[in-house]
Design a protein around this nucleic acid. Structure first.
Lengths: 110, 110
DNA sequence: TTCAATAGTTCGATATTTTTGAACTATTGA
DNA sequence: TCAATAGTTCAAAAATATCGAACTATTGAA
């Protein structure tokens, strides 16, 4: 039984958010999750398939503990959703500003 | 003879800026430099005196190589200035948004 | 000119963090 | 019950950060 740690809205810190987003991989994960606005599995949310599962898992943990995403287990996979409202309330405009500058991973569909 | 590396405006990357700002110490250094709008020596710009000189020097190098500050030698000390225009041109609003959320190191004077 | 003081860099060693593969857990579906 | 899937946890290896010590360059004074 895996327990996920999610900080409450007020425990989300600027430094935590910036540190979480300072990794190119995590930035792209977050970007892809904002694009979609439903839940995504870890595998779906990852724009880089050639990476160890454990590394990926660690990135999701960091995003989770920074308060950027919410994860819950749904069947065999983990559904992740970006905590857009919480972050917007805590740091208005921050996420939009940052993500506005990063490369679109894919605009349309294949 | 020490040569400083300063990326050109166009070589400043979002990831580089975020990575540079994701360290609490560097965030405070940048904050203090934006408050002042002239040059500051490394010592002046540092809100945390109890830190090894070499560590500090490394932080300034990272800020410099991310394109956040410009450093030039002036006599015995190094004058640092934040590259506010370059960053604003490259990522409009980013710096203001981020710094707007971080704690004021000191609002008035002593 | 020489000497000490100052401001910061560079180097090498240690400490911390990240990444990885392997082994594990939990769920689904045959 | 068994295999497949999705992800976690663990321990070791790789990469980064921190530190103290030694170094460089400049200033100012004797």
């Amino acid at each position: 039984m895996v327990q996920f740690v999610h900080p409450s809205r007020d425990d989300i810190t600027l430094e935590g958010v910036l540190a979480a987003l300072s990794d190119p991989m995590r930035l792209r994960i977050v970007k892809s999750m904002v694009g979609q606005h439903g839940c995504m599995s870890c595998t779906e949310a990852t724009p880089c398939p050639d990476m160890a599962k454990s590394t990926l898992s660690n990135h999701f943990r960091i995003l989770r503990e920074a308060g950027l995403i919410h994860t819950e287990k749904k069947g065999v996979e983990h559904r992740n959703i970006i905590r857009q409202d919480d972050i917007e309330t805590r740091f208005p405009g921050l996420l939009k500003t940052i993500l506005g500058f990063c490369d679109e991973p894919r605009q349309g569909k294949d």
